[in-house]
């Protein structure tokens, strides 16, 4: 079986896995990194959203082979030790989560958005595709604005 090496949340990892195995299952089933959630497996719900070289990806549709030599960041790697990432802090301040299942993906999507677009407009926020079945959207919007304002 081919082996793949990449950086995961700052640490070098090597896994043996079929080249077409989606990163999501590599993370969850082989590396026991369970922050990225399965919500559909087809790129539609975005619950699995993580970063590849700082850009948003949906690991359920990214083959592990595509990650070789690159940097993968999941929700577990977003904070700086005990210091929360500003987006996580905003999420905490706004008490965004309900069941919480979509929130790792929501936070990772927002962190990637703010990196490219530090001052997102309403329309930018509307373009976020992540589903929240609990309907936390208005608190998500509030938290994004809060994180963007650097409060």
């Amino acid at each position: 079986m081919p082996s793949h090496s990449f950086t995961l949340n700052g640490k070098r990892v090597t896994v043996e896995a079929p080249a077409d195995m989606p990163l999501l299952w590599v993370l969850r089933d082989l590396l026991d990194v369970t922050g990225p959630k399965y919500g559909c497996g087809v790129g539609a719900c975005r619950a699995c959203t993580s970063h590849l070289d700082g850009d948003e990806i949906q690991p359920c549709v990214v083959p592990v082979a595509d990650c070789a030599g690159r940097e993968v960041t999941t929700i577990e790697g977003l904070a700086d030790g005990d210091r929360l990432h500003p987006v996580q802090q905003a999420w905490l301040d706004c008490d965004v989560a309900q069941c919480g299942f979509c929130q790792p993906g929501q936070i990772m999507a927002t962190a990637a958005l703010l990196k490219k677009t530090p001052r997102p407009t309403d329309a930018d926020i509307d373009r976020i595709e992540n589903v929240c079945r609990c309907g936390t959207y208005s608190r998500i919007r509030e938290a994004i604005e809060r994180a963007a304002a650097g409060r």
């Binding site: 369970t34 990225p36 977003l78 999420w91 905490l92 965004v96 919480g100």
Partner: peptide, 19 residues
């Protein structure tokens, strides 16, 4: 009051059956 599990959720530590 903020949820008692809010921090676990936003850091990915909250554990569901699949985890």
């Amino acid at each position: 009051t903020t949820r008692i599990d809010a921090r676990d959720i936003i850091t990915g530590k909250a554990t569901y059956t699949g985890d």
